[in-house]
Lab assay of single mutants.
Amino acid sequence: TYTWNTKEEAKQAFKELLKEKRVPSNASWEQAMKMIINDPRYSALAKLSEKKQAFNAYKVQTE
C-alpha cells in the first residue's frame, strides 16, 4: 500500500507512474488511463481533475 503525506508527493507518485508505464506524451487521457488504472498509484490523486492536471503537466514535461 502506498501513502502520501502531501498533495505534492501524491502528484509526484502519479507522474512517476506515467513515466514508468511509458505513457507517450501524445497519448489521450483515455489511452493513458487504460495503461495506468490497475496500479495502486492511480489513486494517489483522489479527484479526476487532479489526475488530468498532473497528466497534462507530465505531457508538457516529456514533449
Rank of each mutant, 00 (worst) to 15 (best):
R41C: 02
T6Y: 04
L18K: 00
A44Y: 04
Q61F: 13
A57V: 09
K11E: 15
A57F: 08
K59H: 04
A27H: 06
T1A: 15
Q53K: 14
M33V: 11
Q61V: 10
K7V: 11
N56R: 12
M35Q: 06
M33S: 08
N5T: 12
I36Y: 01
S43N: 14
F55T: 03
A10G: 08
N38K: 10
A46Y: 09
E20T: 05
F14M: 02
I36G: 01
S28F: 04
K11V: 15
A44C: 06
K21C: 08
A10L: 04
K19D: 10
K19C: 14
S25I: 13
S43D: 11
E8F: 08
V60W: 11
L18V: 02
Y58V: 02
E9M: 04
Q61D: 13
E9V: 04
N56E: 13
Y2T: 12
A32P: 00
K47W: 06
S28Q: 06
A46C: 10
L18Q: 00
S28D: 08
T6Q: 04
L18P: 00
S25K: 15
V23T: 03
A46S: 14
A46H: 10
T3A: 09
K21S: 09
Y58L: 03
A10V: 03
P40K: 06
M35C: 07
R41E: 01
A54S: 06
L48M: 13
L45S: 01
E30L: 09
T3Y: 13
Y2R: 14
K47T: 14
A27Q: 04
V23Q: 00
W29P: 01
N26C: 13
V60D: 07
T62V: 13
Q31H: 08
E16T: 10
P24E: 04
L45G: 00
W29C: 03
A13L: 08
A54I: 11
K15Q: 14
K19E: 14
M35L: 11
T1P: 15
K7A: 10
R41T: 03
Q12S: 10
Q31A: 10
E63Q: 10
K21P: 01
S25H: 12
K21H: 07
S28H: 08
I37P: 01
Y42G: 02
E16A: 14
T62I: 12
T1V: 12
P24W: 03
K19M: 15
A46W: 12
K19T: 14
R41M: 02
A13I: 06
